[in-house]
Design a binder for these strands. Structure first.
Lengths: 206, 206
DNA sequence: GGTGTCTCGTGACCAATGTCACATTACCAC
DNA sequence: GTGGTAATGTGACATTGGTCACGAGACACC
């Protein structure tokens, strides 16, 4: 995929610079890209695929925060990279994912020189901030059934699929709940005709 | 309080610019500074006092996210201001608070021109991001007793007081819980000798 | 088609927290 | 002091969600 098609808003000169200095890298599905406590030396622009951003607790639970897709960038990596600081979150490739790694040294001069980059960075911060707010709202104010509902909806929207290849255990992990609870709630949703359940597969009827 | 004492890292020229173009404003204790859905036209630098940043739910619960104090700035206002967008959160003065309002038009040129401002903005994003992560961790992974403990600790640290002038109801609101639950937990803490309870006042023994 | 493994279904039970009701206490205004 | 109001204490109970135990189904590999 061409960089300029994914980031059409960037100036041609900026695109050239990114192509020249950026490093292409591909992660296999399931590969951990970024670990809590790891130092960050570059910002990742996603070219294709999907990255899961999550928070790990002591027992290894993977609490889902949000997904990143083509055209998006990791705000955390931007922030940390700029201070040569460590990450506080985990990132994992949901599917095979191609990224462009932009060295941190370039960031400041790009911010100053290219207005589209400046805009893009601000925009990225803004979206991630909103995403975090949404997460907070959901865990603070909603019950598990509403959260599951939202989870399935978002998953379906982001992947563009109505058939979600997820086990109950995976969903429970993402929502920091337990398999049994998710099973029960899904069963209820199935009885209401809102989903159809199969092995490792949830079909969103809507 | 002099601007240059609160923000010693800023270049003299930047300080001058801020003094010239910024608008001083004082909010009374309890005054709402920023409302969900409100448009933002400037970024606020806090000169003195304390601002509470919280999320409001449908029933009017005020779920505390974090506090801002002298030397800090509202990341949300930075982000929103830059896109002339609306706020997603609420801000209220905890005590009498003095801020310097920096018009959004200045932001971009300041970012480009003053390295210390650029660093400051990045740093602000970083802190707020971390703060949001902490909030998520707490509501996702911790029980109410641990959250209450952390809440009191933070409150005490931020105000520098051991006597917290809070009613049980206020704490319950901040933690999105109910008064009875907080009362019970506080009672338990008192029995363990970790706090002393008075009317509208919690004394942290530590 | 037998066997093992992973996934899912489900009832019983428990812990944490929210809700309700009402008593008690502290403080304020007069 | 007296009365009123706001804050707090507390028991009873409901609800949500987590845990345990175990069984049933699905799928793979031989």
């Amino acid at each position: 995929m061409e960089l300029k098609n994914i980031y059409p808003q960037f100036e041609p000169e900026l695109l050239e610079l990114l192509e020249e200095k950026g490093m292409h890298k591909t992660f296999a599905a399931g590969e951990v890209i970024l670990r809590t406590g790891q130092y960050i030396k570059s910002t990742a622009l996603i070219l294709s695929g999907c990255i899961k951003i999550y928070r790990e607790n002591e027992e290894g639970g993977e609490f889902l925060m949000y997904f990143l897709q083509a055209g998006q960038a990791c705000a955390v990596s931007m922030i940390c990279a700029l201070q040569a600081d460590t990450s506080e979150i985990m990132a994992k490739a949901e599917e095979e994912t191609e990224v462009l790694l932009v060295p941190v040294e370039l960031m400041e001069s790009m911010m100053t020189k290219y207005r589209s980059w400046y805009q893009y960075v601000i925009q990225t911060y803004r979206s991630r901030f909103d995403e975090m707010l949404t997460v907070i709202d959901h865990i603070a104010f909603q019950n598990m059934d509403e959260r599951l509902e939202f989870y399935l909806k978002r998953y379906s929207e982001q992947t563009g699929k109505k058939m979600l290849e997820l086990s109950h255990q995976q969903m429970a992990d993402d929502l920091n709940s337990s398999r049994e609870v998710i099973s029960r709630l899904l069963k209820k949703m199935e009885q209401q005709g809102r989903v159809k359940l199969h092995r490792n597969l949830v079909e969103v009827v809507k």
